[in-house]
Amino acid sequence: MDERAPFVVIGGGVMGLSTAWALSRRGERPIVLERFARGHAQGASHGATRNFNNAYADEHYLDLLARAREGWDALGSVGGEPLLRLHGLVSHGSGAALGSAAKEGAAPGVAAIHAQLHDRGIPAELLDGTEAARRWPGMRFEETVLYSPDAGVARAAAALGELERRIVEAGGEVRWQSPALSIDQDADGVTIRTESGTIRAGTAVVTVGAWSSSTLGGLGIPLPALTVTEENPAHFTPRDPREPWPSFNHFVAPGAWPANVYGMPTPGEGVKVGFHAIGDEVDPDARPFRLDKHAGLLAEYVRDWMPGLDPASAVHLSCTYTSTRDEAFVLDRTGRVVFGAGFSGQGFKFAPGVGAVLADLALDPAARAAPAFRLR
Rank of each mutant, 00 (worst) to 15 (best):
E3G: 12
A5T: 06
F7L: 04
V8M: 04
G13F: 14
G16F: 09
L17S: 10
L17G: 11
R29E: 14
L33G: 03
E34S: 10
R35E: 00
R38F: 07
H40R: 07
A41Y: 02
G47D: 05
A48R: 06
R50W: 15
N54M: 05
N54H: 02
Y56G: 04
A57P: 04
D58E: 14
E59R: 14
H60G: 04
R67V: 04
R67A: 13
R67Y: 06
R67C: 02
E70V: 07
D73R: 11
S77P: 11
P82T: 13
L84S: 07
R85C: 04
R85S: 05
G88M: 00
G88Y: 01
L89Y: 04
L89D: 00
S91G: 08
H92W: 15
S94L: 11
A97I: 03
S100Q: 12
K103P: 02
P108Y: 12
G109K: 10
D119I: 00
D119C: 10
A124F: 01
L127Y: 15
D128I: 03
G138N: 01
E142M: 12
E143I: 04
D150S: 03
V153Q: 15
A158F: 01
L160S: 04
R165G: 07
R166W: 15
R166S: 08
E169N: 15
E169M: 09
G171N: 08
G172M: 01
E173H: 11
V174G: 10
R175F: 06
W176F: 03
Q177F: 08
S178R: 08
L181W: 06
D184T: 03
D184M: 08
A187V: 00
D188H: 10
G189Q: 12
G189I: 05
I192P: 03
T194G: 12
S196E: 13
S196T: 14
S196P: 11
G197H: 13
A204Y: 08
G209T: 06
S213D: 14
S214Q: 13
G218D: 07
P224H: 01
A225M: 05
T227N: 12
V228A: 15
E231R: 15
N232Q: 13
F236N: 13
P238C: 01
D240L: 02
R242Y: 14
E243C: 02
F248S: 12
N249G: 11
H250A: 06
F251Q: 06
F251C: 07
A256G: 05
P265I: 03
G274F: 13
F275G: 10
H276E: 12
D280H: 15
D280R: 07
E281R: 09
V282P: 03
F289A: 15
H294R: 04
H294A: 09
E300K: 13
Y301M: 11
Y301K: 09
V302E: 15
W305R: 03
P307N: 09
A312V: 06
H316G: 10
H316C: 08
H316M: 10
T320R: 12
D326S: 09
A328Y: 03
D332A: 02
R333H: 02
V337D: 00
F339V: 00
G340E: 06
G342V: 09
S344C: 11
G345T: 05
Q346I: 05
K349I: 00
F350E: 01
F350V: 02
A351G: 08
P352V: 06
G353T: 00
G353E: 01
L358T: 05
L358Y: 03
A359E: 10
L361D: 12
A367K: 15
A370S: 10
R376H: 07
